[in-house]
Write a protein that binds this DNA or RNA. Structure first.
Length: 111
DNA sequence: ATGCTGACTGGGG
DNA sequence: CCCCCAGCCAGCA
C-alpha cells in the first residue's frame, strides 16, 4: 500500500542486477526508476538494504566513483575490499577504472 | 510547521 | 576530475 516500498523494491532489483566486477551510480538507478531528481532517495533505500540480503550495495557509488557509502559498512574499508576483490581498482576511496567498470542499467538492461 | 542532514546530481569554471 | 551552488526528497528534533 506504500508506493515507497515499490520504489525500494525497484532499487533492490536493479542493485541485484549489477554484474560482478561492475559498479553504478545512485543517479543511474534513480533515473532508471524515473526519479532522477531523487538520487538521494536511492542512497536512502540502499541504507535500508542492510535489512535485506543479496544487495551488493558496495557496487553502488556516486557519480565521481567515490565510495561515499563505505562509512556505512561494518568496517572502515570493507566496501573497498569487496570492490577490489571483484577486480575494481580503488585509490583513496575512489574507483580508478570507473569508466571500465561502470554499469549503466539503460545501456545494459534496456536494449 | 521549521530547519538541518544526508550512501546525490548537473552545470559552470 | 575537482570545487561551488542550487534543487530534491524523506527523516528527525
Amino acid at each position: 500500500m506504500n508506493n515507497s516500498e515499490n520504489f525500494f523494491s525497484k532499487v533492490y532489483t536493479v542493485a541485484k542486477l549489477i554484474p560482478h566486477g561492475r559498479v553504478t551510480s545512485y543517479g543511474a538507478i534513480a533515473k532508471y526508476l524515473g526519479v532522477a531528481k531523487s538520487a538521494r532517495m536511492v542512497g536512502w533505500a540502499m541504507n535500508a538494504s542492510h535489512n535485506i540480503d543479496e544487495i551488493p550495495a558496495h557496487r553502488v557509488v556516486n557519480r565521481n566513483g567515490l565510495l561515499t557509502g563505505k562509512h556505512h559498512f561494518d568496517g572502515t574499508n570493507l566496501m573497498q575490499q569487496l570492490l577490489e576483490s571483484e577486480g575494481i581498482i580503488i585509490k583513496e576511496n575512489k574507483i580508478q577504472n570507473l569508466n571500465a567498470v561502470f554499469w549503466d542499467p539503460f545501456k545494459e538492461l534496456n536494449t
